[in-house]
């Protein structure tokens, strides 16, 4: 029998509540909160606007007026908290659905990875070592946030873990692959950003024309593979 993780509920202002499972990067906690996320999403609770899973928390954004209209004397915050508690404490059915396995091509050329040589220096590794270490592991998508379709993946081999840049770049190109601490991620759009950039993928992570505009989702298993500049330029799978 699975036990539910311990949690606490806090208000996030007057229109959201945060279910906090402890400020900890832990795969099994993340897995359980994603189960709860799917349950809440499937229930289509009236007044719930958004459900946002993160590493170790789940946030529910709600419409105060919609819930108020059916309140019947109770406060809006109490109603939403009770509803959410009920779902969290329900026995969680573990789904045996296979996680999606996705391979993503990355060109680790210095033109696309402006922090490669700096990292190689800091870590006393060759650029080839960095590429080899980054492509060796299978990463898990823990959460999506920051930008449309930005997947936070972990965990990066200790030998290539690097803190964020002290002065973030004002412009990181779309498709850039970066490292921040034990996380790795891909910028879906051009954006300011502080991650150490080691390469670029030709794959579109965000496509506004699609009904599912975002490519990656939590629990996906990601593996990177190295491609040449020529392969990057001639990549045909952009719209697939």
């Amino acid at each position: 029998m699975q036990t539910n993780p311990t949690y606490s509920i806090f208000p996030l202002g007057d229109n959201a509540i945060l279910i906090d499972f402890g400020n900890e990067l832990n795969e099994s906690i993340n897995q359980k909160l994603l189960e709860i996320f799917r349950k809440i999403k499937n229930q289509n609770m009236p007044g719930v606007l958004d459900v946002v899973p993160a590493y170790s928390s789940l946030t529910i954004h709600y419409d105060v007026m919609k819930i108020f209209e059916k309140a019947g004397g109770k406060t809006v915050f109490d109603i939403i908290t009770d509803q959410v508690k009920k779902i969290v404490e329900d026995d969680i059915e573990i789904s045996f659905e296979q996680n999606r396995k996705i391979s993503i091509p990355v060109c680790y050329d210095e033109e696309f990875g402006p922090d490669l040589s700096y990292m190689a220096n800091e870590k006393s590794l060759s650029i080839e070592n960095i590429i080899q270490l980054h492509t060796a592991k299978t990463y898990r998508v823990y959460m999506i946030g920051f930008l449309p379709g930005f997947a936070y993946m972990g965990t990066v081999d200790q030998r290539i873990q690097m803190p964020r840049k002290e002065n973030p770049r004002t412009n990181v190109e779309a498709g850039s692959v970066g490292i921040a601490g034990e996380q790795t991620g891909i910028y879906p759009l051009q954006s300011p950003g502080g991650w150490q950039i080691i390469g670029r993928t030709p794959v579109l992570l965000f496509n506004k024309e699609k009904t599912a505009p975002v490519l990656l989702q939590p629990e996906d298993e990601i593996k990177f593979f190295s491609i040449s500049k020529h392969e990057f330029t001639n990549y045909q799978g952009r719209d697939s």
Binding site: L18, N23, Y55, S57, G145
Partner: peptide, 8 residues
Amino acid sequence: SLLSSAVN
């Protein structure tokens, strides 16, 4: 330090 989580 705080792990990333939702903001509003």
